[in-house]
Simulated assay, not measured.
Amino acid sequence: MKSMFSHILIGVDGSKESFRALSYAMTLAKQFNGTCDVMYSIPPRVYAELAEREVKIEEPSGDVKFISMLQQEENHIRDLVQDIAAKEGLTIGFHTRVGDPVDAMIEYVSTSGVDLIVVGSSGKGMADRLILGSVSTGIVHKSPVPVLVTKPEA
């Protein structure tokens, strides 16, 4: 019999709220013997700004290469996610999309068998959400599966 939450998707953007959501989702995955995938979405305006900027990377071999700032950030977040998961004895799939985070996550859910989405909330008030938008609110309104929104620390 399939467990209640066998495939969990977590939205991670590098914020402490998103890493709190990751921690909570991993706890659920272990409890229900499920799997986790992380979605890291890059808004198009951020992509356009950072994709062309390069940083110098020195390889352990002494070789030097250049990668985009965007790739460096993605690598950093992926490595953090994988390190946190490894400490919990889990392997987590990591997926990157360029585009609206809400649309990217909903599209992934429709093709992957995800049965729960976990996202963090920054605790913005109603006025901030109207001006800035809210990924967690968008996910809740559009998701075909249950959504768990973790709250910020008090």
Rank of each mutant, 00 (worst) to 15 (best):
V118F: 00
G89D: 13
E107F: 07
S110V: 02
P43I: 10
T96H: 03
V135R: 02
R78T: 04
A48R: 05
I92Y: 13
C36P: 11
E74D: 07
K56W: 01
D83A: 01
G93Y: 11
K30E: 13
A104W: 07
M39N: 01
E59A: 06
I57L: 06
Y108R: 15
G93C: 01
T96D: 10
M26P: 06
I42M: 03
I106P: 02
F94N: 04
A29F: 01
I117T: 02
L50K: 04
A51R: 09
D103S: 13
L70Q: 06
S136P: 04
G93D: 09
L116G: 00
L90N: 00
V118R: 11
V98E: 14
Y40T: 09
M105K: 12
A85G: 03
I84L: 13
S121K: 12
H95S: 01
E59F: 10
G113E: 04
G120Y: 02
Q71K: 09
F66I: 08
T96G: 06
V46K: 15
I131D: 07
L28E: 08
Y40G: 12
A25L: 00
F66K: 15
E52N: 15
G120C: 13
F32T: 06
A48C: 00
A29I: 07
I77Q: 03
G125V: 07
N75G: 09
D128H: 13
Y40S: 09
S112Q: 09
S122Q: 12
F32Q: 07
L132Q: 15
P60S: 05
T96A: 09
Q31W: 13
L28K: 03
D103G: 09
M69Q: 15
K87F: 00
E49H: 08
E52H: 15
D83M: 04
D103H: 14
D37T: 07
Q72L: 04
S122Y: 08
D79S: 14
K56G: 09
A51P: 01
M105I: 10
D63F: 13
G120R: 01
L80A: 00
D100K: 07
E54W: 02
R129K: 14
A25R: 02
K87C: 01
A48E: 13
K65R: 14
V38T: 13
I57M: 07
V98M: 09
G125T: 12
A51I: 03
I92N: 08
K56E: 13
Q82H: 15
F32D: 03
R78W: 11
D128W: 03
V118M: 05
Y40E: 08
P101R: 00
M26S: 10
T27V: 01
I131F: 07
T111P: 10
K65M: 00
A86N: 15
